[in-house]
């Protein structure tokens, strides 16, 4: 019998492979349905945004992270959430001088375990759900951010890097309806 069968079962966890392959199947479905890479990138971001809006609630309940007093706090909490939900610890860095922009560097990226981009899909942002999650989650705690990939090891870059930029604090925000 394989060693894997001895794995202790944690009811709050699921197999990383199931997660990776399920996500991959969704990306494949979107590519099939939209036949347009830019539109797929947009859809993935939106799916991430929807997930982020709901994920933040779980994060607040589970990790009890407290308030963010500045954007560095926010960055720390994003790092913490990656650990909690995806089991990876990205590094945070490359701060802009004004302290309003930073990078999340993923190594490894749990979404791309079995992935290789074919040549005709070099413009696909395969993991575009992740910046969407960051944007959605931040918006729910009244921080508007821009998040996007600036490097992706799937495309031959050395690292996988998401750039997060502070836009503004949302005042008296009405809860966003479901898109």
């Amino acid at each position: 019998m394989s060693r894997q069968n001895l794995r202790a079962i944690d009811p709050k966890k699921v197999s990383g492979e199931l997660f990776t392959l399920t996500y991959g199947s969704l990306v494949a479905q979107l590519l099939k349905d939209y036949e347009n890479v830019e539109e797929v990138n947009r859809q993935l971001e939106r799916i991430g945004y929807n997930i982020g809006m709901r994920l933040i609630e779980d994060f607040l309940a589970r990790a009890n992270p407290g308030r963010c007093y500045d954007f560095r706090d926010t960055a720390d909490k994003i790092q913490q959430a990656f650990k909690l939900y995806l089991g990876v610890s990205p590094s945070i860095g490359s701060w802009s001088p004004g302290g309003d922009e930073f990078s999340v560097v993923l190594d490894p990226n749990p979404l791309t375990e079995f992935v290789e981009l074919p040549d005709h899909l070099q413009n696909l942002r395969y993991s575009n759900v992740l910046p969407g999650v960051i944007r959605g989650a931040a918006e729910m705690v009244q921080i508007e951010v821009l998040a996007s990939f600036i490097a992706d090891s799937l495309k031959g870059d050395n690292i996988t890097e998401i750039r997060v930029k502070f836009v503004k604090r949302l005042e008296d925000a009405v809860p966003a309806g479901e898109d």
Partner: peptide
């Protein structure tokens, strides 16, 4: 992959719900 990585059930449930 040795199949040992794990992610949180919440993350999976939300992804599946979106699907």
């Amino acid at each position: 992959s040795r199949g040992k990585t794990e992610v949180s059930l919440t993350a999976y449930a939300l992804l599946f719900s979106e699907m």
